[in-house]
């Protein structure tokens, strides 16, 4: 597909991430990648495969199993002018890093009165669907949406993965970059050149008049699949890919909801206090509340840990079918019967 920059070709999400890191490291000697098994192993999901061969062990750094320690190290390196990319092998392990992310990275600039910058990127794969059970499948990104001082991005396509990672590396603030294990092999058109996808801008990935579906990450594709099925029945869904969870692009969501009058949020994290609650709250506490002609709905993970068994796992996760069901309930003319 040709684009504004010239050449694009189809590559995977994994390759797009690798390409962004490689371009950034070629251009800027202060960028480095650090994490568990990112060197010769190539990362647990192969994202950095081949990078140590190009950049050497000084810039693609295998760490001891010390998530808090090397997250802190990244923050300290950022304070003195480096641009770290810290990889946390599974996003569940981010629990080890909470002090460093919440009390340090997010706070240093503010509590030092604006006299410091922490240009720090932490990449980590979240999400379920791999049979890895409760400690390797969570979607904990909402925790960090709740922490001022952090930015949280969650790209769903190879194009956005590359563009958002390059934007995150330009950003003088700490950015948590959420990948998804089931997206790494997904292919899409990606320009060869450098480009940025601005942090904080949602994308309208499908236009429609009947209902707004807001999503991000892997489940954005579930929303798109659902929208295609619904179109067969004459329901035209507008699908938004938030791409950034914090700062949240409320204006784009509100604009779409004011057009359609109906809102469904599709998120993979558990429903209670998930980021979808924030999307809904901003709509119902604002002017766009009056544009709603149905109560908003959420399709989210069940409020349980992720189970191992394949059928059990599918039972608690969002799916295109669950999105279709939610939209159908919402557009049902009998007001109030949706669940």
């Amino acid at each position: 597909m040709p684009n504004e920059n010239g050449t694009a070709r189809e590559i995977t999400y994994r390759e797009a991430l690798r390409e962004a890191m490689t371009l950034a490291m070629r251009n800027d000697d202060s960028v480095f990648l650090m994490g568990e098994d990112v060197g010769v192993y190539g990362g647990a999901f192969g994202v950095s495969r081949g990078m140590v061969e190009e950049f050497g062990e000084e810039r693609v750094v295998d760490t001891p199993l010390s998530e808090a320690g090397f997250t802190g190290l990244g923050i300290g390196a950022a304070l003195v002018g480096m641009k770290p990319i810290i990889e946390v092998q599974f996003s569940d392990f981010i629990t080890h890093c909470m002090d460093q992310l919440v009390n340090q990275a997010a706070k240093l600039r503010y509590m030092f009165g604006g006299e410091a910058e922490v240009p720090f990127v932490l990449r980590t794969p979240g999400g379920a669907g791999t049979g890895a059970a409760a400690q390797h499948s969570q979607s904990l990104e909402a925790w960090f949406v709740h922490v001022p001082g952090l930015k949280v991005v969650m790209p769903s396509t190879p194009h956005d993965a590359k563009g958002l990672l390059l934007a995150a590396l330009d950003d003088p603030n700490p950015v948590l970059f959420y990948e998804h294990k089931l997206l790494y092999n997904r292919k899409g058109d990606v320009p060869e050149e450098e480009y940025r996808v601005p942090i904080g801008e949602a994308n309208v990935s499908r236009e429609g008049e009947d209902v707004t579906i807001v999503s991000a990450g892997l489940v954005h594709h579930y929303a798109l699949e659902a929208a295609e099925s619904l179109a067969d029945d004459g329901i035209e869904a507008e699908v938004l890919d938030l791409r950034t969870l914090s700062p949240m692009d409320h204006a784009t969501v509100a604009g779409s909801v004011e057009k359609t009058g109906r809102l469904v949020v599709v998120e993979e994290d558990v429903k209670t206090a998930g980021w979808g609650a924030e999307v809904v709250s901003r709509i119902v506490e604002g002017e766009s509340f009056y544009a709603l002609d149905r109560a908003p709905a959420r399709v989210a993970g069940a409020d349980v840990p992720i189970p191992y068994n394949k059928n059990l796992e599918a039972h608690v996760r969002p799916s295109p079918e669950k999105v279709i069901e939610a939209v159908r309930s919402l557009v049902d003319e009998r007001v109030g019967v949706y669940s």
């Binding site: 090397f70 190290l73 990244g74 923050i75 390196a77 304070l79 003195v80 002018g81 480096m82 009390n103």
Partner: peptide
């Protein structure tokens, strides 16, 4: 590089400065 209200909170940070040097 800052006083720190979290006990041991700066121990990783100091390693980062040293790593950069």
């Amino acid at each position: 590089l800052g006083a720190n209200g979290i006990v041991a909170g700066s121990m990783g940070i100091v390693c980062g400065a040293a790593w950069a040097f």
